[in-house]
Design a protein around this nucleic acid. Sequence first.
RNA 1: GGUUCUGUGGCCGAGUGGUUAGGCAGAGCUCUGCAAAAGCUCGUACAGCGGUUCGAAUCCGCUCGGAACCUCCA
Length: 496
Amino acid sequence: MSLKVYNSYTRTKEIFEPLTPGHVGMYVCGPTVSGESHLGHARPFITFDIIYRYLLHLGYKVRYVRNITDAGHFEEEGRDAEDKISKKAVLERLEPMELVQKYTNLFHWAMKQLNNHEPSIEPTATGHIVEQLNMIQTIIDAGYAYETNGSVYFDVKKYAASHDYGKLSGRVLDDLLETTRELDGQEEKRDRADFALWKAAPPEHIMRWRSPWGEGFPGWHIECSAMATKYLGAQFDIHGGGMDLMFPHHESEIAQSTICNHHTPAKYWLHNNMITVGGKKMGKSYNNHIKLTEMFSGNHHLLTQPFSPMTIRFFILQTHYRSTLDFSSEALAGAEKGLKRLWEAYTLLQQLPAEHSGEAADPALDERCKSLILAFDEFMNDDFSTAKVLANMFELVPVVNSLKDGHIKRDAVAADTIRLMQQKFRIYLEDIFGLVQEQAADNSKLAGVMQLLIDIRGEAKSKKDFVTSDKIRNQLTGLGILLKDEKDGSVNWTLA
RNA sequence: GGUUCUGUGGCCGAGUGGUUAGGCAGAGCUCUGCAAAAGCUCGUACAGCGGUUCGAAUCCGCUCGGAACCUCCA
């Protein structure tokens, strides 16, 4: 059973075979740190975190590179060349690098909240200006770029004569050349489809570097090509990012890297789909985005309550990464409850004794459990179908709960099967899906206080003093602590 | 306009041509001092119209709706 991934480049599912056996190089387009991350940004980083974790689980040695775009991009073709970062820096009266630092820190904080692993290397665009300049020079020397007024453009038409420009995104070059839109700065280009490798900086532009063509700043696409080449080589295994980056960003990356390195850069291109709101893509420019800090605090008009990082992570895992995922407060609330139920069953499962004699008293049930569990790997190997793994887990929840409370006899399922479930649930929920117990700040003092209250309530109940016992339970409920009277007479509590 | 994708029960969402997706919400029952939780049972959905097929949510065509990209965008 081997891993299959959907390769956007060939539009088919392919068996994953790394270029170097045992090793995987993966590049994922990271954030532009000119503002705060929103829910939409969480999707690719969680998606590729799961992919990273799964590759590690399969035993690969993975180098995961995710860049920080801190140089700011000019607005493509057309409008005034403007650097988003420097523009905002003026508004906020901050140094560009101060702004970049602020949002980089916030991004890292959010990633940690969401329990994403850190990438192996997190290179910044500003830290790789030299590499970008070298790459641009190589492209010029190869005859695929030209300089005009201090800016350098990639010659798409020339490239397309011998290469398949548009293959990744399904673009037809003739259509691109025929775009009728009126665009500023177009006159510097030989063709409309050409894209900038280097832009001359206007005087007011704060971020600027010296180059053989004058002072300026790098084009939109070159940083990823330069940094991917530097850290992963001329050819690497996986390039990931949001679907909205396929064109022109990834298409241009392919063209640049191909000219420099004589290879298409990545063997497999993986793209996650968008998060939508009422069917429309969530995005900064659509005015429908919810920042991650707002998600966590609940402080947004589209939210009826706060949602924890794990709820968001779980919500994203419940759908396939190549499908759109429609956001609503209601859908998130559903995910929150589902996660709670799953996690409680998982906790109970880990406490189930698996010591009885071995043979399953209910072979049909035992078999069902095993096949549900064994399908986990099959689903993940089929282009990372996290939603299906979760569905199977939910099918096992009633079994676990029933084993716990005696609806199903303990020996109905073989001890080996219990151990298999315990092991697989742990590996999948914690190692691969990266879910963690929230509010783990279960400190021992609170536990002691709770035990005291539970004892007092137990005494009241034994005297049929239900006024007192209900007062304790109701007031705790008001504080967000739920008491549960178990079948065996014990009392458990959970934080709501 | 071009390219691509998509339309599943109250909501979110899996779906490889024939067998239960799953979650949330809702209803009933069991358990319980009462709750909560849990367990059991239930809705019987696939935009519309044709076609292929013994059989289609799943393949094909058309119609209608939605989206993404074509501009910064995860």
